[in-house]
Simulated assay, not measured.
Amino acid sequence: MKVFQFFLVVCWLGVAAVTAVAFAEQGMAAGQVFVSDIQQLNWRAQFNVDFFAHLLLMGLWVAWRARFSALGIVTGVACVLGGGLVSLIYILVAALRCGGDVQKLLLGQRL
């Protein structure tokens, strides 16, 4: 579990670094870039739609894991809108709280 947690931290640092550079160079244009790429119906569009499907799945899992409580829904939406900056931290905190029990990590309150 420690290797997994280290992996999450490394991934989060990578996402945070790229996000900081993108924000510094392009500001808050992420949504416009995302939508305009999808409108092109090319490989960038395919990647963005595929990625968005994964974000939706992540958000749904987070909300489901918390039994669709208000906090679970808010956190799930935050994972969709915040991507890896939010979801990687969410998984790291959940992994730390589960004490190495993968079943607890995956099922959360449903255990």
Rank of each mutant, 00 (worst) to 15 (best):
D37R: 14
C11I: 14
L81T: 12
D37S: 00
F51V: 01
K2H: 07
D50G: 06
A16T: 15
F7K: 01
W61P: 12
W12Q: 10
S36T: 11
V18R: 14
Q103G: 10
A63Y: 04
N42P: 11
Q40I: 15
V102S: 07
V10M: 13
F51M: 04
L8F: 04
R44S: 08
L81W: 09
G31V: 02
G72R: 02
G108Q: 00
G14C: 05
M1F: 08
G72V: 06
L107K: 05
A45V: 05
L85G: 15
M58N: 00
W12S: 15
D101C: 14
V86E: 03
K104L: 03
A30T: 15
A29F: 05
F34N: 00
G31R: 14
R44K: 11
V15N: 06
M58R: 00
F47H: 11
L106C: 02
C98P: 07
V3P: 00
W64C: 08
A63G: 02
V15P: 03
A63P: 04
S36H: 12
L8Y: 08
S87T: 00
L41E: 07
R44Q: 15
V10K: 09
C11V: 05
A17K: 05
L13H: 07
G72D: 04
V21P: 04
W12C: 07
M28D: 08
Q46A: 15
V35Y: 08
W12T: 12
F34G: 00
I91P: 01
Q39T: 00
I38N: 08
R67F: 10
Q39N: 10
N42T: 07
R110D: 09
R67N: 06
G31M: 01
K2V: 09
F34L: 11
N42G: 10
V80A: 04
L71K: 10
V49P: 00
V21Q: 15
A29E: 11
I73L: 06
I73A: 09
V33D: 15
F34H: 08
R65H: 09
L41P: 01
